[in-house]
Design a protein around this nucleic acid. Structure first.
Length: 763
DNA sequence: CTAGTCGGTGTTTTT
DNA sequence: CACCGACTAG
């Protein structure tokens, strides 16, 4: 199939820069690919080129991505391009590849063969338990924070033993937790996500044979979204490439939006220093968006410092101006969006061509409400995924326990659901016994049959139940086992009961959720049935299935089938594109987020905005609300600074902002967009959600609606107070003498003060 | 031991 | 506002 005559299709549809990247000789290469410049396409074509033209064996290619979706898409497109399956090609996520290596080399990695993956939820539970075990007050040591700390240590390659400076009290406690957590994981054969990476890295670093094997094997290492790599991922790649391999990295520093979870954009710079002879190819021609949208994106991102530099251009037309809507409040904003959505739907647009992007998930609620009201089908991305659902995790915990009795995390979960008549007190005793005996909960329970007094009987019923299930499950196909576990554990019964109770309580309607839970249990059985990894390197099916569940948490929410408007956060929109995009909630403190504003760290938020803008192909809408309810309190917001950073000739203000407006005052303002609806918007004071009628409340003044006088102070302003020191203004409330101001003080925490008495000094 | 009520808290997400 | 975790009554 590799006649030169047929090579043409591998490069024909590529532009010069793309072609250069795809057909380049085998040197280290960094492709700086702007948004919409054909990044994935280059990666896919490069691999096809290597196999089809350079005659590189698929066996010696490693392609790494961050998400399963990207990995699947990549494999699909390569196979399509080559018109043949490429089974031997290693394409996967960092975690997936690391996992695969660990399964293959479990001995060298000093793991037990049946090690299980701990997802973030399980991990946090375990950390919490350990904090308690160490008698650390859990209000001072929140599991979430400690878990994050542990993960970031792992991401920096640090092991519990590698802290020589133990001086700091805080750190000492953290290291203690880390140490205990680590030994628990070791004892029980549990590996968390960060551990997958660290173990795989250490495996390749410390085990000469393994290292030599993979260096020999992978002559070509290709990485997608390189700007999102963390320290460990970078080191691992470097290790694998060695001095014989060739690295091909694709990324965009302007789209680095995961710094907060450890991603290091600096890795792109490091690359140039540490990979000799690295060639850089820039892809700057954009095939996605109109000239106007690109101009806006370029204008915005130019404000960032330390960019690698790149300017997107298109030879397409300018297209329509970006519309900016200054909404009265979040309901007005949502109404505007829905109106425009309907306009577009009357045109050539399908629902799925329209996307609403927001900074935080909480913003989806109001949008959702308005879309329902407008009878527009929509789909929300994000939220719980299939394998993260409570009932699914319960069932998997039972499966894991049946599979490995020493898995304490699963033991505790299974013991709790369905209720076995063994509660917190007994569990505490059991934990103590396990700690003293140095073994698992299971071992402790079996060791002393009278440990719990009268509760012992219940406990042993539970133990026997698990043993019986394990017995029945032997030699059975996976789906059978899953079914057996769900029924034999009493989980199905448990959720059936739940369904019945809820149905009675709320006359049928509320049983939806319970109903869905039962369906999910069935779904889990069919997931097990359709799960078949082609001899996944000799791993037994149960282990493979559990790993799959942890590594690919499944679809996020909602049925994909129907044509619907797409709602998602800006983060989850990365990598997608839509003809029409709405970015809502462009207010200071929301987008950019409050935290970013306080820390003065706007660059990542700006990149996020850049990502959002560049999702749009033809039409982009931006909006912000002058008043928004946040955490139940109405807050007056300022427009996001990003709005001003967009070249003004790209923007068309649908309704010019003129200070704070009352709803009644914007009838007829601006030619477009729902002026006549004005009287329907309620204001503060609540009454939205519950009522049947909706927005019949008469327009009312909102707090400070008429030129508020806050002594010249503004939201977000830094001020100083005689007693509390320096702080930042979070919100205003009330007027005149009763005007209050909420301030976050650097040292004294959040305080609500009467403006008249506070004697604040602007800084 | 479990099921309800109160109070504190509150980005972004993958694996 | 809405969720989650801790506490208290059965």
């Amino acid at each position: 199939m590799n006649d030169l005559a047929e090579v043409g299709h591998l490069v024909r549809q590529l532009n010069d820069a793309q072609k250069e990247a795809v057909t380049a000789p085998p040197d280290h290469r960094l492709v700086l690919a702007g948004a919409g410049s054909g990044k994935t396409r280059v990666l896919v074509h490069r691999i096809a080129w290597l196999i089809g033209v350079e005659r590189v064996s698929p066996l010696s290619i490693l392609a790494v991505t961050f998400t399963n979706k990207a990995a699947n898409e990549m494999r699909g497109r390569i196979e399509q391009l080559l018109a043949m399956p490429v089974r031997q090609l290693w394409v996967g996520t960092f975690h997936g590849i690391a996992h695969r290596m660990l399964r293959l080399h479990w001995k060298e990695a000093r793991l037990r063969q049946d090690f299980q993956i701990l997802d973030s939820d399980d991990q946090q539970r375990l950390v919490k338990r350990i904090i308690k075990q160490l008698d650390l007050p859990d209000d001072q040591w929140p599991a979430k924070m400690v878990t994050n700390w542990i993960n970031s240590q792992k991401e920096e390659g640090r092991r519990p033993g590698s802290f020589d400076d133990m001086g700091d009290f805080t750190q000492r406690a953290l290291v203690r937790v880390y140490t205990a957590y680590h030994s628990t994981c070791e004892a029980q054969g549990l590996v968390d996500f960060a551990e997958l990476l660290l173990r795989a890295y250490e495996l390749c670093r410390d085990h000469a044979e393994v290292q030599a094997h993979y260096r020999r094997k992978f002559r070509h290492v290709l990485v997608d979204e390189f700007q999102d790599t963390n320290t460990l991922q970078y080191l691992w790649l470097k290790l694998l490439v060695g001095d014989q391999g060739v690295l091909f990295a694709v990324g965009d520093d302007d789209q680095s939006v995961y710094g907060w979870r450890g991603a290091k954009v600096e890795n792109m710079i490091k690359l140039q220093r540490e990979f000799a002879g690295l060639e850089i190819v820039r892809l700057e021609q954009n095939y996605r968006s109109t000239g106007t949208i690109l101009k806006a994106a370029n204008g915005l991102i130019e404000r960032n410092t330390g960019r690698l530099g790149k300017n997107l251009w298109t030879d397409g037309s300018d297209g329509a101006p970006i519309q900016l809507y200054a909404a009265f409040n979040e309901y007005d904003e949502a109404e505007f969006v829905v109106q425009r959505i309907k306009d577009h739907l009357n045109g050539p647009c399908r629902h799925a061509d329209l996307a609403v992007l927001y900074r935080s998930n909480a913003q989806s609620r109001v949008m959702e409400e308005m879309l329902i009201r407008g009878r527009v089908p929509y789909r929300i991305y994000g939220g719980l995924r299939f394998f993260e659902r409570m009932e699914v995790k319960d069932a998997l915990a039972w499966l894991r326990l049946v599979h490995n009795r020493d898995d304490d995390v699963s033991f505790e979960r299974a013991l709790a659901t369905p209720p076995q008549g063994v509660g917190a007190t007994s569990l505490d005793k059991l934990r103590a016994a396990a700690r003293d005996g140095g073994g698992s909960l299971w071992a402790a329970a079996r060791r002393d049959p009278t440990l719990l007094g009268r509760t012992s009987a219940k406990l042993h019923q539970f133990l026997d139940k698990v043993d019986r299930l394990a017995d029945q499950a032997r030699e059975q196909p996976l789906a059978q086992v899953m079914d057996l576990v769900i029924n034999g554990s009493g989980l199905r019964e448990h959720y059936q009961k739940g369904a019945a109770t809820e149905a009675r309580a709320s006359r049928g309607a509320g049983s939806d959720q319970a109903e869905a839970r039962l369906e999910n249990l069935d779904e889990l059985v069919s997931a097990a049935r359709s799960f078949e990894k082609p001899d996944e390197d000799g791993v037994e099916p149960v282990s493979a299935f559990l790993a799959h569940a942890a590594l690919e948490a499944g679809e996020g929410q909602a049925t994909a089938g129907e044509d619907s408007v797409q709602l998602m956060t800006l983060h989850s929109a990365k990598g997608l594109e839509f003809p029409v995009v709405f970015i809502v909630g462009l207010e200071n403190g929301l987008f950019p987020s409050m935290r970013a504003v306080e820390e003065g760290n706007l660059e990542e938020e700006r990149r996020l905005c850049y990502v959002g803008i560049t999702r749009a192909r033809q039409q982009l809408y931006l909006s912000y609300a002058e008043v928004r309810r946040i955490h139940g309190v109405e807050q007056i917001g300022m427009p996001s600074p990003f709005i001003k950073e967009i070249p003004s000739d790209c923007l068309m203000e649908t309704r010019p902002r003129a200070g704070l407006l009352r709803p009644s005052s914007f009838g007829g303002a601006g030619s477009a967009g729902g002026g006549s609806n004005a009287s329907r918007y309620g204001s503060g004071g609540g009454g939205y959600g519950g009522g049947t009628g909706g927005y019949t409340a008469p327009p009312r003044r909102i707090h400070g609606a008429s030129t508020p006088d806050y002594g010249g102070l503004k939201l977000g302003q830094r001020v100083s107070h005689a007693k509390f020191g320096e702080g930042v203004i979070l919100s205003f409330e009330g007027e005149g003498e009763r005007a209050q101001v909420e301030i976050r003080f650097r040292d004294a925490g959040n305080k609500r003060l009467l403006l008249g008495l506070a004697k604040l000094q602007p800084l």
